[in-house]
Computed example of a mutant assay.
Amino acid sequence: MTTTLAGIDFNAPAELVARQLIGVTLLVDGVGGRIVETEAYDRAEPASHCFIGETPRNFAMFGPPGHAYVYRSHGLHWCLNFVCREPGHGAGVLIRALEPLDDAAGLARMRARRGLDDVRLLCAGPGRLAQALGVTRAHNALPLAAPPFQLLPAAGAGVDIEVLAGTRIGISKAMELPWRFVAAGSRFLSKPHRG
Rank of each mutant, 00 (worst) to 15 (best):
L133I: 14
E37A: 05
G125T: 08
H89T: 10
P65A: 13
A44G: 13
H67W: 01
G75L: 03
G88Y: 03
L98M: 11
A44D: 14
L101F: 02
A132F: 14
G66H: 10
H77L: 07
G127H: 07
D118V: 12
D42F: 00
G92L: 01
R96H: 02
C50S: 15
P46A: 14
L76H: 02
G106F: 11
D117I: 03
C123W: 05
V70S: 06
R72W: 02
L98I: 13
A112M: 09
L94E: 00
H74P: 00
V119L: 11
Y71V: 09
I52P: 05
P87G: 01
F82E: 00
L98N: 07
Q131H: 08
E37R: 10
L76F: 11
R114F: 12
R109N: 01
L98W: 07
L80W: 15
R43D: 02
P56R: 05
A91N: 03
R85M: 08
P46M: 02
H77M: 00
F62N: 07
G88L: 07
Y69I: 12
Y71P: 09
A124Q: 05
D102N: 12
A124K: 05
M61F: 06
P100Q: 10
L80G: 04
N58P: 14
A60M: 12
L80V: 11
P126F: 14
E45R: 05
A112L: 13
L116H: 14
M61D: 02
L98Q: 04
V70E: 04
W78N: 15
L76A: 03
A124H: 04
R114L: 10
L133R: 08
F51I: 04
W78G: 00
L129E: 10
Y71Q: 03
P56T: 02
P100K: 06
C123Y: 06
A68M: 10
P87F: 07
A68R: 12
V93E: 00
L122Y: 11
V119Y: 06
S48C: 15
L121R: 15
P65G: 00
C50Q: 08
R128I: 10
E39A: 01
R85G: 00
N58K: 10
G63L: 04
G127C: 11
C50T: 15
